[in-house]
Amino acid sequence: MNQNAVENGERQRSSIGLKIENFSKSYDLVPVLNNISLEVNPGEIFVIMGPSGSGKSVLLKHVAGLETPTNGRIIIDGKDIAQPRTRRELSMALVFQAGALFNSMSVFDNLALYPREHRLYDRATLRQKVMRALETLSLQDAAKKHPSQLSGGMRKRVAIARALVMEPELILYDEPTSELDPTMAATIIEVIADLREEFGVTSLVVSHDRDLALTIADRVAILMHGDLLEVDTPANIKRSENPKVKDFLNPVIDIKNPRFKKKDYSS
């Protein structure tokens, strides 16, 4: 934590790690995720990549404690997330894929809800913190608007700004760059990296954005059809010999022999 942040009245933040142990999930006996084990170190940017429907978002929901696993445990900062008190002791934010903004409230109130409910700041500090989060994502003009008046990309940025205001130690991102134009996607990638630089925030990102995974991630996990194929640094993932991983990261567009006409086409 740098001196500047302390002067600005930041709450003391420390990094926390997380551990997923032998995690499995089935819905109505249909397995979605099979025996996943992985560890995210404190202060790390960990990206889980995989095709749509591979169970990435399901995994994230379990880490956030919104659902209970069929088997296995999720340990955050040494505490089991299945215990109700764990969440109260942790400072964790989840950025939902569709934003999950409160539709009855203005953008400003969406961001201010968390600090207001937890009585963190006085009125002036609250306003300053909220406006700073909005400025970071160039949303200052949208403060008075309601979520229904925003575009998909703006809603996503508001969702990220809402997580920033919470000043969490662990941020979970569900597809943070989908639906965004390339410049805004790059901004979001920079924001994620900057949060780690400035505050040591641990980030768990679910995405299929190659740029995001291969530029800022410390480690990347490849998840396909409910199985964890590889966990490694971006450099090693790029050199992977696994044909499925290769095809996922660098799909060859072949018009003469399209993959949906191949016999073993399954995804």
């Binding site: 404690g65 919104l66 969440r87 934010a93 989840l94 939902f96 999950a100 903004l101 409910e117 919470m166």
Partner: peptide, 15 residues
């Protein structure tokens, strides 16, 4: 609110 995950968002915010 439940279907559009607003309730989930509240839960993750400890509210």
């Amino acid at each position: 609110m439940k279907v559009y995950q607003e309730v989930d968002a509240l839960v993750t915010m400890n509210i």
